[in-house]
C-alpha cells in the first residue's frame, strides 16, 4: 500500500512537471521560438490542407492488411539504419537482432511485407544518427522546426543528413520509383499518426515540442533514463 501511494505521488509529480514546463526552461530549449512557431504554422497549414486529407483518404481506401503490409515494408527498411546506428553505438546485441529482423523479414517475410521477426520474438529497435550523436554525448542544441521536415533539434537535424544517405530507398536507381516510395512512406507515416494526434490538447506547438523533446531524450537512453528510476525520488 505504501509503495502504491509512493508510485501515485511520483506519477503525479512527473505529470505536473511534464505538463507545466517553466518559462525559463522554454527559453533554454527553444530560444528560436519565434522562427519555430512560424515554421510550425507553415507545416501545420500544409498538413491540414494537403497531407492530412491525403493520409485520411489513404487510410479509408486501403484495406487494413495492405496498410499493415506497407507499414511493415517501410519498417523493415528503417531497420537498416537502426542496425547501422546500433553498431555505431556499440550495442552489438541490438545490432544482432536488427540484422536478424532484416534477414528474416526480407526473406520469410516476403520483402518485408510481413513482419515475421516480431512474432518470432526478435525485438524491434528504433535508432537514427540523431540518437547516435546523443549517445556519444553531443548536446541536442536548441529546438528547431524545419519547413516540411517538422520538429527536430540542431543535433537531430544534422543527423538527418547521414540518415538520408543510408536510407535504402535512396539506393533506387529509378527516379519515379524512388519518389513514389518516398511519397508512400510519408503518407504511411502520417496515417499512423492520425490516432495519436487526438491526444493533442492545449497549445499545439508547445505540446508537439515537449512531446518531441521528451521522446528523443527517452529514445537516446532506450528508455533507461534515470528519471524513470523510482528509487531516485
Amino acid at each position: 500500500m505504501k509503495a502504491k501511494l509512493r508510485s501515485l505521488l511520483v506519477a503525479g509529480a512527473v505529470s505536473i512537471m511534464l505538463s507545466q514546463p517553466s518559462v525559463a526552461a522554454d527559453v533554454e530549449v527553444d530560444p528560436w521560438e519565434g522562427f519555430n512557431r512560424a515554421m510550425f504554422s507553415f507545416n501545420d497549414g500544409l498538413d491540414t490542407y494537403a497531407l492530412k486529407p491525403v493520409s485520411q483518404g489513404y487510410k479509408a481506401i486501403m484495406p487494413d492488411i495492405a496498410e499493415t503490409g506497407v507499414s511493415n515494408f517501410f519498417g523493415n527498411l528503417s531497420d537498416v539504419g537502426t542496425l547501422l546506428n546500433n553498431l555505431l553505438q556499440g550495442k552489438f546485441s541490438n545490432a544482432t537482432q536488427d540484422f536478424a529482423r532484416i534477414a528474416f523479414n526480407s526473406t520469410f517475410g516476403l520483402a518485408g511485407l510481413i513482419d515475421v521477426a516480431t512474432p518470432m520474438g526478435i525485438e524491434k529497435h528504433d535508432e537514427d544518427f540523431g540518437q547516435t550523436f546523443g549517445y556519444w554525448g553531443v548536446e541536442s542544441g536548441p529546438y528547431l522546426v524545419l519547413p516540411f521536415f517538422g520538429p527536430t533539434t540542431v543535433r537531430d537535424g544534422i543527423g538527418r543528413v547521414p540518415d538520408y544517405l543510408v536510407d535504402p530507398v535512396r539506393q533506387l536507381d529509378d527516379n519515379g520509383a524512388r519518389n513514389a516510395m518516398y511519397a508512400t512512406r510519408i503518407i504511411n507515416d502520417r496515417a499512423e499518426l492520425l490516432e495519436a494526434e487526438k491526444l493533442i490538447s492545449g497549445d499545439k506547438y508547445t505540446f508537439v515540442r515537449d512531446a518531441y523533446l521528451q521522446k528523443r531524450a527517452f529514445s537516446i537512453v532506450d528508455g533507461d533514463g534515470e528519471n524513470y528510476d523510482e528509487s531516485n525520488f
Binding site: F92, S93, T96, Q97, F99, A100, I122
Partner: peptide, 9 residues
C-alpha cells in the same frame, strides 16, 4: 560468430 539469446549472426 556473435550470439544474442537464441539468435546468432
Amino acid at each position: 560468430k556473435y550470439t544474442v539469446g537464441t539468435t546468432s549472426v
